[in-house]
């Protein structure tokens, strides 16, 4: 079957098997390997991408379901050569170690920050409950999200 979608602002279309998962489409067909597979069962969040602006686990979405949609992956975060504030936050606050959960973690955080501009520590912990990190113990991830929130508020003049 054929899917037509937009990935990180670039439209594309491909012939695919109906059973192909979105994460495998992104990694193996579109060649965007920044999105990782950690569990294939929606439990770890390593594969989180934005589907029409909302965070989804791309390991349990069929590529076919993304037909006509707009997908944002970690590769689409940086704009005009500058890092996205969430990327800056993770770097600045040591929000990653092995880096495997990081793309999914950042996408889930971007989803949160699109809904609330000044999340509390509890809200951040809650919003990231679908994303596992085994290295950081989460504290620096929370600081990274707070860093990004502040940066984005400042940029928006709030």
């Amino acid at each position: 079957m054929r899917v037509n979608l937009t990935i990180n602002g670039h439209p594309r279309g491909d012939e695919i098997e109906p059973r192909l998962l979105l994460v495998h489409y992104l990694r193996d067909v579109a060649g965007l390997t920044g999105t990782h597979v950690g569990c294939e069962t929606t439990l770890c969040g390593a594969c989180t991408v934005l589907l029409d602006g909302k965070a989804v686990k791309s390991c349990t979405v069929l590529a076919a379901q993304a037909d006509g949609a707009s997908v944002t992956t970690v590769e689409g975060l940086a704009k005009d050569g500058g890092l996205h504030p969430i990327q800056e936050g993770f770097w600045e606050e040591h929000g990653l170690q092995c880096g495997y959960c990081t793309p999914g973690m950042m996408m889930a955080a971007v989803d949160l920050l699109s809904r609330t501009t000044n999340p509390s520590e509890d809200e951040i912990r809650h919003a990231l409950e679908g994303n596992l990190c085994r290295c950081t113990g989460y504290q620096h991830i929370i600081k990274a999200v707070q860093y990004a929130a502040e940066k984005m508020r400042a940029a928006a003049g709030r």
Binding site: T33, T35, V74, E75, L83, F90, W91, L96, G99, P103
Partner: peptide
């Protein structure tokens, strides 16, 4: 970190 946060 630059390679890890950029998905590369």
């Amino acid at each position: 970190d630059p390679r890890l946060i950029s998905g590369t």
